[in-house]
Design a protein around this nucleic acid. Structure first.
Lengths: 229, 229
DNA sequence: ACAAAACTGAACTGTATAGTTTAATTGCGG
DNA sequence: CCGCAATTAAACTATACAGTTCAGTTTTGT
């Protein structure tokens, strides 16, 4: 079994996951996300799953396959969470703000950060994981948001621009230094204030760039961090 | 020697690097960046450096220390490259575009991507590396750019807003899907057209958000990727 | 030239780990 | 109650690797 095949085969053997299989998958996913591929031994996985090593190998052919399988699945699950607004009776700016808030909090979830870290770390040795993350999370969320933005553009609520680029930029405006700090685990962890400030700044800038008219609201300066000792 | 001390001590023993020490450092840096911490053995490093294992251990106390040392140094070197414009007689938009172009190309360099990958991968086990990357690369470039943007704001060339947030958003607008794709090694590698399109879109959006007046130039739609099968 | 220092190659220790095997045990349907 | 399949614990194989040691060789400073 080559590493490259492991993932494509992953979706196939999901017909009827035995309870043991679920135990193994959950324990292994948790360990892999917390510590990465190399730092987790198959003995540790068996122990954490409350299962013998023989059983582990009865369900999963190798460590590579187990890893690719689980992280690929984690990407799918994570990417399935749509972050788009369901009802949108309100002001567009308010809707965008709520959307940005949910999206940033999703990005900052320990689960999301762990997936990102482990995929970045192993994307060289497991290229299919890089592709899975990119397609099932990054690309899919971008396309979903683009479709929604396009509706807003068509309705005249936003300037008519390439909606894919707009979506991309909206997401990028949320993945700022606060996100980088969280990815790298640099203290302190994101505070409520920082999250809100980042959301506000992102929506503000996005709106100034994509709002159809320019009422130029007089916004006072804010500083999310630094500058003051 | 604890892992945590390794980095802080790193800068100290740099007084006079022996040629052998340089050989080791270069070989090890190259290997660590290409394959990550766990996948590189000390034997492989010694072999690649053309040095015996005893010599390796004469210069570096442990694999942990070697790794933290080298990647920390790589962060410093990488962060030292300023990306700011030296002369700025031209139109601000043109200057910004050149700046964005250089910054994005820097972000997409194999070297930059390798440092980012390895730091993200090991920031859990080597927290000081996460901090080093964040402070010496992310934070420093943000502050440099913020200072430059502040001058532009003070000169009336940009709307007076928090320059740190503006800098952060400018950089974020460059770290879009193209960058994510490169980080994850997803094919195809960034093309010249994609780089230019991303730069153009970023500058466009930044300018619409931060330009003092709104001449609202009629820009036609562009699509960097996707949407077409 | 000579002595000290740096360096080498190779063997060695101890440990960790992927994956296998086996004999004994448990659970379950008929 | 029997027998079959799943499971277990533990021992086992084979390998890889961090780090050490040492006898011998090369380099270097004086």
């Amino acid at each position: 079994m080559s590493q490259t095949e492991a993932l494509s085969q992953a979706g196939m053997d999901r017909a009827d996951p035995t309870p043991k299989q679920r135990d193994i998958a959950e324990a292994a996913t948790r360990l892999f996300m917390a510590q990465g591929y190399a730092a987790v031994s198959m003995d540790a996985i068996a122990r954490a799953a409350g299962v013998s090593k023989a059983t582990l190998y009865a369900y999963f052919a190798s460590k590579d396959q187990l890893f690719a399988n689980l992280i690929g699945t984690a990407c799918s699950r994570s990417g399935a969470h749509s972050v788009l607004p369901t009802e949108e009776e309100l002001d567009l700016r308010t809707t965008l703000r709520a959307l940005a808030d949910r999206a940033l909090r999703f990005l900052l979830e320990p689960q999301s950060l762990a997936i990102y870290r482990v995929v970045v770390a192993e994307s060289v040795r497991f290229p299919e994981l890089g592709r899975a993350f990119f397609e099932r999370i990054a690309e899919s969320s971008r396309q979903n948001l683009a479709a929604w933005l396009k509706k807003q553009m068509d309705a005249g609520n936003l300037l008519p621009r390439d909606p894919v680029i707009a979506a991309q930029q909206f997401i990028s405006l949320l993945r700022t230094h606060l996100y980088t700090r969280a990815v790298l685990g640099v203290d302190p962890p994101p505070s409520e204030d920082e999250i809100e400030a980042t959301v506000t700044a992102a929506v503000e800038t996005f709106f100034r760039a994509y709002a159809p008219e320019s009422p130029a609201p007089a916004t006072e300066r804010r500083s999310e961090s630094a500058l003051e000792p």
